[in-house]
Write a protein that binds this DNA or RNA. Structure first.
Length: 114
DNA sequence: ACCTTGACATTGG
DNA sequence: GCCAATGCCAAGG
């Protein structure tokens, strides 16, 4: 498997996150069939062509924090996009307990992928 | 080829 | 909650 392929898996998978929901980089990697490779998920979002129009802003750190520094241009943009979907961001952070994915949904998504 | 830098995560103190 | 240590690994220098 080439890294380009890995990126494409991530790009395909991130589009499965429904509006109004969020996932962590680790979950994204897992769903893409790349367990333990959260870092790769971040990398591939960073390098994704803008033309793909990915919902990158629905991906957060495992503790719910935005991946960008508080007050940065990127963080503000992400916060705005999330709040437009009624996801509350406080102190650069989302309450992940409100967004736990049910195991059967994860199951469905995994089957969609492969 | 070696080193550093990240849109990361988990564990242990 | 904070920090350091580990594990992860592609990109760019």
């Amino acid at each position: 498997m080439t890294t380009a392929t890995h990126y494409q898996h991530i790009w395909r998978t991130v589009q499965l996150i429904p509006s109004g929901k969020v996932a962590s980089y680790g979950q994204l990697a897992d769903l893409a069939g790349l367990p333990g490779r959260a870092r790769l998920a971040g990398k591939s979002l960073a390098l994704a062509p803008k033309s793909l129009q990915l919902p990158w802003y629905r991906v957060l750190r495992s503790n719910g924090q935005l991946a960008f520094p508080l007050g940065s241009e990127q963080a503000n943009l992400q916060k705005g996009l999330l709040q437009k979907e009624d996801v509350v961001v406080l102190n650069n952070r989302v309450n992940m307990r409100l967004f736990q994915w049910s195991p059967n949904l994860i199951d469905i998504l995994c089957k969609l992928e492969y």
